[in-house]
């Protein structure tokens, strides 16, 4: 499916859902984020919210400002104008996230490494070496779903989710990796923890990461974790 064939369907009476196919693929994700960048740059007066996901964008509009049909036609034009060059030229930000792996920071690292048949430090190193993209943010405010996990590191979710996952936990769930922004229940495998605050409603923007950002992890020790955590609080 190419960009001009993007499928538009009503998500709500004041929102359209634009779908670029139904598969998780880097090229689709790049198109999603390029379209979002394009719409944000145009900043139409009716725009309330843009919600990118793996292969779709939710577009929320103010129905008192523009007719749904006018919004749909405009979105079609934007999709049609989205060529390979403009997708490739979409600027991306790279954010480095320090992570303390294993031990109290990553209680599942050892078991996960065993399940994969590799040493724990190799799992941590391979996870940290990945080149990730924030595919979308959801589940909880500021929770990034990171695409780009080495497929060899995919791990099934825990059979019984934890009732309390500490804030900042870096985890693998299926073929994805992500970071828990605040203490919550969760069923992903915890490899490590970052001292950075991923979400703070008092900040603008409130989330450390945005959809489309590239993420690099940097392995740190307990000392640096403590130092950075003190700075964050």
């Amino acid at each position: 499916m190419n960009a001009t064939e993007a499928d538009l369907q009503p998500l709500a009476d004041d929102a359209w859902l634009l779908r670029f196919g139904d598969a998780i693929a880097p090229a689709t994700l790049a198109r999603v984020h390029a379209l979002c960048a394009r719409v944000r740059a145009a900043s139409p007066p009716w725009l309330r919210d843009l919600v990118p996901a793996y292969a779709s964008v939710g577009v929320f509009f103010d129905p008192a400002v523009a007719d749904a049909e006018a919004v749909r036609d405009w979105l079609r034009q934007q999709c049609a104008a989205l060529d390979e060059d403009s997708v490739a030229a979409t600027p991306t930000r790279t954010v480095e996230i320090p992570v303390a792996y294993g031990g109290e920071f990553g209680p599942d690292l050892e078991a996960a490494a065993q399940a994969l048949g590799i040493p724990a430090d190799a799992l941590a190193a391979r996870h940290a070496a990945g080149d990730y993209t924030v595919a979308m943010i959801g589940f909880a405010p500021g929770f990034p779903y990171l695409a780009g996990l080495d497929p060899a590191l995919a791990l099934p979710r825990l059979a019984t989710p934890r009732t309390r996952v500490p804030a900042g936990s870096v985890a693998i769930g299926g073929a994805q990796t992500g970071i828990y922004p605040r203490e919550s229940p969760g069923g992903w495998r915890l490899l490590g923890r970052t001292p950075l605050r991923l979400f703070d409603p008092q900040r603008t923007p409130p989330a450390l990461l945005a959809p489309g950002d590239r993420v690099r992890f940097r392995a740190i020790g307990a000392d640096e974790f403590a130092r950075l955590a003190a700075r964050e609080s």
Partner: peptide, 10 residues
């Protein structure tokens, strides 16, 4: 299904 936007009323 693959995750996508939802809204009040979905």
């Amino acid at each position: 299904a693959i995750s996508e936007a939802v809204a009040p009323g979905t």
